[in-house]
């Protein structure tokens, strides 16, 4: 019993350990509930999900589906960044165009794009093109908004002094606007990645011939919670890795200011 205070002090000093404990307790509750209390057709314990994970990857088409989804995410993200950057700079650099077009951008950003998901399918088909387009439609607006905000915060005195020292337009962009924009650019990329993930996954779940949406529907209809949970966990891991990459980049490139 004399050891308890020591353990308590250790836990108090390391909240991370306690956090891990909470996660483990949650998994144990899930395991117990799924093993003895819930119909195995609807839920399966984490241990059996883990055991059946290698089997899931052997189902023909699943690795391909994950690859397609990953590819859709990458293309949609790249397109969102490219278009968002171009539109953001075009709208943000001129005060007049900012005042004119920013309300329109915010209006579009505020409308729930899920309502037009069926339209994307009609226009772009049920293949990867519609997922990419829908992902871009979700990813592009946060990027535009943050780019505009980043350019807007630029102190006019910096531009004026650059001009007075004889900088041309390109030099002003390269040495004043661009470094100033970097932090908000990466914040925008992070928000854009969240949007792209949402858009692509929504479109995948809505209709899909070869992507992960096809398999989630298949596993749901065949009552295979093992495979379904395994697939969801794999995708969640993919999403976490992508988010984390962009967040790391943001932290890295936002540092120069401090």
């Amino acid at each position: 019993m004399r050891r308890w205070p020591a353990i308590k002090r250790y836990m108090l000093r390391h909240p991370g350990v306690a956090r891990l404990g909470v996660v483990i307790v949650l998994f144990v509750i899930w395991e117990i509930a799924a093993r003895w209390f819930i119909d195995p057709l609807f839920m399966s314990p984490p241990s059996s999900v883990l055991v059946s994970l290698p089997q899931m990857f052997e189902i023909s088409g699943v690795p391909g589906a994950l690859r397609i989804t990953f590819w859709e995410l990458a293309v949609a993200f790249a397109m969102s960044v490219a278009i968002g950057l171009a539109v953001g700079l075009a709208v943000g650099l001129q005060p007049f165009s900012r005042r004119s077009f920013m309300p329109i951008v915010l209006l579009l950003y505020g409308t729930p794009q899920v309502t037009i998901l069926p339209l994307f399918i009609l226009f772009f088909g049920i293949g990867p093109a519609s997922k990419i387009a829908f992902g871009v439609s979700h990813g592009i607006f946060p990027i535009i908004v943050t780019i505009v905000a980043g350019v807007q915060n630029l102190k006019p005195i910096l531009l004026t002094s650059a001009k007075s020292m004889g900088a041309n337009r390109w030099q002003a962009f390269r040495y004043v606007i661009f470094p100033h924009m970097i932090p908000s650019f990466f914040t925008g990329m992070r928000l854009g990645m969240t949007g792209v993930l949402l858009g692509v996954l929504l479109a995948e779940l809505y209709v899909s011939t070869a992507g992960i949406g096809y398999f989630t529907t298949l596993f749901t209809q065949n009552f295979e919670p093992d495979n379904l949970l395994g697939l969801i966990a794999t995708l969640a891991a993919m999403a976490i890795i992508l988010n984390e990459l962009v967040r790391r980049a943001e932290n890295h490139f936002a540092r120069w200011r401090d």
Binding site: R19, V22, V23, F42, T194, L197, L198, L201, L202, L205, T216, T217, F219, T220, F223, P225, L228, L229, I232, L235, A236, A239, I240, N243
Partner: peptide, 19 residues
Amino acid sequence: LFAGIYAIPIILFLPLYVL
């Protein structure tokens, strides 16, 4: 912990909830 879970696209749970 909450912030970490929040980073996952929760729409992924939809097939599970439908099941």
